[in-house]
């Protein structure tokens, strides 16, 4: 796509374009997007790590605050759906290699992918704030995890724990959503003008 508009241009004009890059050039925009995406993936991984260090005083595994979703949501709102997807997948892969292990990694991957898809769709609906998007993503995450867990053990008994997990996911999702709301409000306006490629919304 970077070549399409330069193909028909006369050589002189092309050379001039190369010499004085227009600001912001698409390459620069893309580098910025990649940089922000990588930084957010690092933030997501760090949040995952911190959350892994501090176990919640709740005797049911699976109840988490999901603070890593702060970075995923930030990527969704700053760069778009594909970046959010990349940030979350990178985080889960890194966490899997570093501390959660292969099995937990694949398990987390299913919930993570489902959550990002849900958040992209909810954001695209344009009627939800970041809080609603976050709550929906977190509810989709836990529902997907329970569904996969019941498929793995081939027994539906675990679904009895879904209602309480759903309520905890709504609370955690709302907290994360509010944090991201404050974050987006505090970020400089310029950061939102650096999207590259076609808009996903």
């Amino acid at each position: 796509m970077t070549h399409s508009h330069t193909d028909d241009a006369p050589p002189a004009a092309e050379a001039a374009k190369r010499a004085i890059p227009r600001s912001p050039s698409s390459a620069r925009t893309r580098i910025r997007a990649v940089t922000i995406c990588a930084a957010l993936a690092a933030v997501a991984f760090s949040l995952s790590y911190i959350e892994n260090l501090i176990p919640l005083p709740i005797p049911v595994p699976g109840v988490k605050l999901g603070f890593a979703n702060i970075a995923t949501l930030a990527a969704l709102y700053i760069l778009g759906g594909r970046a959010a997807f990349a940030v979350n997948i990178l985080r889960i892969l890194l966490a899997g290699l570093m501390f959660t292990g292969a099995f937990a990694m694949f398990y987390a991957l299913s919930g993570g992918i489902l959550a990002v898809i849900a958040m992209i769709l909810l954001k695209r609906a344009r009627v939800f704030s970041v809080v609603g998007v976050s709550v929906g993503g977190s509810a989709a995450h836990i529902t997907g995890q329970i569904l996969l867990a019941s498929l793995i053990v081939k027994n539906a008994a675990i679904f009895t724990s879904l209602p309480l997990l759903l309520i905890s996911s709504i609370i955690a999702g709302a907290i994360v959503g509010l944090i991201v709301y404050l974050l987006l409000r505090a970020l400089p306006r310029a950061i939102f003008r650096q999207r590259s490629g076609p808009r996903t919304h």
Binding site: Y77, A125, F128, S129, V131, G132, V135, Y181, R185
Partner: peptide
């Protein structure tokens, strides 16, 4: 833009 923290749809 973040808009309102909580909307009706939320």
């Amino acid at each position: 833009k973040p808009g309102n923290p909580i909307r009706r749809a939320d």
